[in-house]
Design a protein around this nucleic acid. Structure first.
Length: 495
RNA sequence: GGGCCGGUAGCUCAGUGGUAGAGCAACGGACUUUUAAUCCGUGGGUCGAGGGUUCGAGCCCCUCCCGGCUCACCA
């Protein structure tokens, strides 16, 4: 864990004081720069090529953080880093004058500095700005992480993410990619006529997924509220209201353990499209993901861990039944009830809690045998109705619903179905869930009377989708842990 | 919650029972094209916390805290 160092702080505070005594504001409000670091380098390169020792007459003003400082008596080099990259600055006493030059001794790594000067290329070939004048833009009072090894302590990286970002270009890149994923997703959906909406995070009851919620208290109403576990039920109310294509990208909260694939708050996309079914959604998912990857990485093939993933459509499609049969040898449809299926699983030496219901057992088979094998993008189709209280049954087989999940890199990244729009059946499904809840399943879906009331007013057939943005970001940034793609991941409080 | 691993200077890390170390960073000095600048010198530590064993504990034992991986739980 990073800790404050009082000695360094006092030293830097003294430097700050010296600046003020010289009438210098160490925290000015504004600075007008003419170029980013990378722009300055490109400018010089275009005008003078890469001949070592070349001097130009281009004057630039750049600003950034001091990341290295090499004082050599009557001359000094320092590295400035801004969002575009790094630019070396060269200071010499005969150019800056004795006073301004000596003041460099009170400069520290981490300070923000603005410099103006002429570009040249050193004899070792680096484009450099020879400083005519400089301005302190923000004094730093704590030392930055080590310049060569950077920050490796994982706990410090997460608790003080600014230090991690400060010292690692790779980490900065990860979060830039994450941002581009989300904006590419928005562009894709917007171009297809989807309307982006926002629905409540604080809810009198949390529904739309099988998960335990966080509870909070609303003082003004004197009531407990729940943080949403999904956006589904509100988005479908909007279909009832007449919107035909809606989506929401937002944070949801699930009161569960953390792991490399789970953070208690995470970000999902949910979209709903009227008059579409899960087959239409499947086509959209593979097209959308390929589009995003192409925009963000410039190709639909990329490295994830030790494998090359190819997200070019079409993705493999296989029924959940066949996938489980293939990887575990168990045909769950041949075992129509929980007792029989559990017995079959125990024959294969799986430890299964006797309290697990039929749906959970199937889920267990999926996550144990199938999910880790799905490295290349794959859609699993047709799930048992017990596992999907909000999905429409298949016309040909009432044990199953029209649902698919998308996998890549051994992780679930999408979940979608043809939405159940029959209010009477929805009520019955809720009743079944209520029964499971009464039997001790804390994750069972609770009946949402207003949602049923909405359905009773008529909802068009629709295809709905949920996607985990964090997991998509893990894939595209080649990170094995969800915490690496969340800026401030959840950690236990430390005191 | 279980198992395994880790927590030593601001940072990166050595140190397996006998005077707490190195590199970077910091401070002082030399140096006008360096770039992990170089050279000389200096300061800097409740060794995660608490207890125990021992003549003596960073090191061995116990408890606890925090983190990582993993299993379980968990979409």
């Amino acid at each position: 864990m990073a800790e404050r160092n009082e000695e360094f702080y006092q030293q830097r505070l003294a430097k700050l004081q010296r600046l003020r005594e010289q009438g210098i504001d160490p925290y000015p409000a504004r600075f007008q720069r003419t170029h980013l670091a990378a722009e300055a380098v490109a400018l010089f390169q275009a005008a003078h090529g890469d001949t070592p020792g070349a001097h130009g007459d281009e004057t630039v003003t750049v600003a950034g953080r001091v990341t290295a400082l090499r004082l050599m008596g009557r001359a000094a080099f320092l590295d400035l880093r801004d969002i575009s990259g790094r630019l070396q600055a060269y200071c010499r006493v005969d150019r800056l004058g004795e006073v301004a030059y000596q003041r460099l001794h009170d400069l520290d790594l981490g300070d923000f500095l603005g410099v103006t000067g002429a570009l040249f290329r050193t004899r070792t070939g680096e484009v450099t700005v020879e400083v005519h004048q400089y301005v302190m833009l923000g004094k730093s009072l704590q030392p930055p992480p080590e310049k060569w090894h950077g920050l490796t302590d994982v706990e410090t990286r997460y608790r003080h993410r600014y230090l991690d970002l400060m010292s690692s270009e790779e980490v900065r890149q990860t979060f830039a990619v994450r941002s581009r994923i989300v904006s590419a997703m928005r562009r894709f959906l917007d171009a297809r006529g989807f309307l982006e909406v926002e629905t409540p995070m604080l809810q009198p009851q949390a529904g739309g997924a099988l998960a335990r919620p966080f509870v909070t208290h609303y003082n003004a109403l004197g009531q407990d509220f729940f943080l949403r576990i999904a956006t589904e039920l509100h988005l479908k109310r909007l279909l009832v209201g007449g919107f035909e294509r809606v989506y929401e990208i937002g944070r949801i909260f699930r009161n569960e353990g953390v792991s490399t694939k789970h953070n208690p708050e995470f970000t999902t996309l949910e979209s709903y499209q009227a008059y579409a079914d899960y087959q239409d959604v499947m086509a959209m998912v593979e097209e959308m993901v390929a589009h995003i990857v192409q925009e963000v990485l410039g190709a639909t093939q990329f490295q994830y861990r030790d494998r090359t993933l190819d997200l070019t459509p079409p993705w493999r499609r296989i029924t959940l039944r066949d996938a489980i049969l293939e990887h575990s040898g168990i045909d769950y449809l041949a075992h129509p009830d929980a007792e029989s299926l559990r017995a079959a699983m125990q024959v294969r030496e799986m430890k299964v809690a006797p309290t697990l219901g039929y749906g959970k057992l199937v889920d267990e088979l999926l996550s144990t045998f199938v999910e880790p094998q799905l490295v290349q993008p794959t859609f699993l189709l047709d799930y048992p109705v017990e596992l999907s209280p909000l999905a429409k049954r298949k016309a040909e087989d009432s044990r199953l619903v029209e649902r698919f999940e998308g996998f890549a890199g051994g992780m679930e990244i999408a979940n979608a179905f043809s939405e159940l729009n029959d209010p009477v059946e929805q009520r019955a499904r809720f009743a079944h869930q209520a029964q499971l809840h009464a039997e001790g399943d804390e994750e069972a879906e609770l009946p949402d009377e207003d949602f049923i009331f909405a359905l009773e007013h008529g909802m068009p057939p629709a295809g709905g989708l949920g996607m985990g943005i964090d997991r998509l970001a893990m894939l595209l940034t080649d990170n094995p842990s969800i915490r690496e793609v969340i800026l401030f991941p959840q950690l236990r409080r430390k005191e």
